[in-house]
Design a protein around this nucleic acid. Structure first.
Lengths: 199, 199
DNA sequence: CAATAAACGGACCGGGCGGTCAACTTGCTA
DNA sequence: TAGCAAGTTGACCGCCCGGTCCGTTTATTG
């Protein structure tokens, strides 16, 4: 499978360096970050980037898998929490916080990438579905909201806050709170459109 | 000012064609739509695009101004409505609907563009502030939400829906409804972060 | 129906991108 | 410590982008 051979020490170091640099660069420049810039930021040659991640999509896939798996782990842990409503809010907070440092919104675009990405994403989506089901059963989330809704809404707080004037790194919390209030049963008006098909 | 000279008939026609083509292309391909593609879609030569809109930013600016002014006009009209809460919802619906056909989210990025864009945007923002103030005074919107919040949230429904599987062109209505419910006073929990500075 | 200025179109240019390659360097191991 | 495979590097390629330019076409007007 993936475990072809053990990496040489410097190669492993460079790989880590590159993943970090790529993360930073993508966070700064957005999804169109140039491979050359990533190499420069990582302090390595352009060729090295390509050696480690054959194509640019492979590089993006590596970043995405990293973060998605971390987020999934958090979700799994919260699945056994005693307060399902708070667990969901906590999950969304962690997700947004993770994205705040390094914009992860392109997670969605990554659908056409590696099979590995698809699997990692599917596992995370499954976790979200379960978190939402639990919260809904506990009466913390309105009955007409599905896991798919929450998956789609997950990136919205960062997206919304990203257009505000700088110097407000935590602004996403404000919009997460508004969206969460919109997800609660209290004062909910019926939704005008059916939920999206299972994601 | 802008009225240097009267346009020749074919030039005016091409200009309209180009604006439409550019709108479609941007809607389809996103903000990175290529000038050549726009020219092809409009059935004109590449040079013609450049002639009408010296730089690519000018072309984007033209589209943005078009839509922003249309939206502002709607808002102005709604400012005299008898139901301030419904007026705000209607405004947000029109805004999202406008964006649905042709993604307008890049309105936000357009901040660094022409002075004209800045002015058009400022007028629209002012209209939103007044709509929100009226709705808040009428008790239709929670007291801790500002016009700046609504401005930032305005594009979220389309953004959220854009990642759903295709074939659901009206899905944004669902997320607009959730966000609107989050903006209502009923069941509102205090917000954890101050609103952004005036936009 | 000219004559003319306005508008058109596409070849062309510089630049940056993703990706390849062969010469060079270096960590590993026997 | 010597030899070699693994790793690095930057020059290089083809591609497409935004923008320029000039020969050609066409709407306008007297």
């Amino acid at each position: 499978m993936t475990s072809t051979r053990r990496l040489r020490a410097d190669a492993a170091r460079n790989r880590r360096l590159l993943l970090a640099a790529a993360g930073d660069e993508v966070a700064a420049r957005g999804l169109g970050a140039s491979g050359a810039a990533i190499a420069r930021r990582g302090g390595v040659g352009k060729g090295t980037v390509v050696r480690h991640f054959a194509t640019k999509d492979d590089l993006l896939a590596a970043i995405v898998i990293d973060r998605v798996e971390a987020l999934t782990a958090v979700g799994e842990r919260l699945l056994v929490s005693s307060d399902p409503g708070a667990a969901l809010v906590e999950f969304l907070t962690v997700a947004a916080d993770q994205q705040q440092q390094r914009d992860l919104s392109f997670l969605q675009e990554a659908g056409e990438l590696t099979e590995q990405v698809a699997q990692a994403r599917a596992r995370m989506f499954d976790t979200v579905h379960r978190l939402v089901d639990r919260a809904r059963d506990g009466g913390a989330v309105r009955s007409d909201v599905t896991g798919a809704d929450v998956i789609l809404l997950m990136c919205a707080p960062n997206y919304v806050a990203s257009y505000a004037p700088d110097g407000t790194p935590d602004l996403w919390r404000r919009y997460l709170a508004i969206i969460v209030d919109g997800l609660r049963p209290q004062g909910a008006n019926p939704l005008p459109h059916p939920p999206p098909a299972v994601i």
